[in-house]
Amino acid sequence: MMADTDGSVKISPVRWVAEQARLYEESGGTRGTDMRGSPCLLLDYVGRRSGDWHRTVLIYGHDGDDYLIVASNGGATDHPLWYKNLLEHPRVRLRVGTRRFEAEAETLSPEEKRRVWPHLLEIYPPYQDYQDRTDRDIPVVRLRPLT
Rank of each mutant, 00 (worst) to 15 (best):
M1P: 11
M1T: 09
M2C: 12
K10F: 11
R15I: 15
E19Q: 13
Q20F: 00
A21I: 09
E26C: 02
G28R: 03
G29A: 04
R31Q: 15
R31K: 14
M35A: 09
C40Q: 12
L41A: 06
L42F: 00
D44N: 15
D44K: 08
V46Q: 10
G47R: 00
G47D: 03
R48L: 03
S50G: 08
D52N: 13
T56V: 10
T56M: 10
V57G: 10
Y60P: 05
G61R: 00
D63W: 03
D63C: 08
G64P: 02
G64V: 07
V70D: 04
S72E: 08
N73E: 12
N73Q: 10
N73D: 08
A76C: 09
L81W: 07
L81T: 15
L81C: 14
K84Y: 04
N85G: 07
P90Q: 06
V92L: 00
V92H: 04
R93W: 03
G97F: 00
T98H: 04
R100A: 02
A105N: 01
A105G: 05
T107Y: 04
L108C: 01
S109W: 08
S109N: 03
E112S: 02
E112W: 00
V116G: 06
P118R: 08
L120A: 06
L121T: 05
E122I: 09
P125I: 00
P125R: 05
P126R: 07
Q131I: 10
Q131K: 10
D132E: 13
D132G: 02
R133Y: 05
T134A: 03
R136T: 09
P139A: 11
V140H: 04
V141K: 09
V141A: 13
P145N: 03
L146H: 05
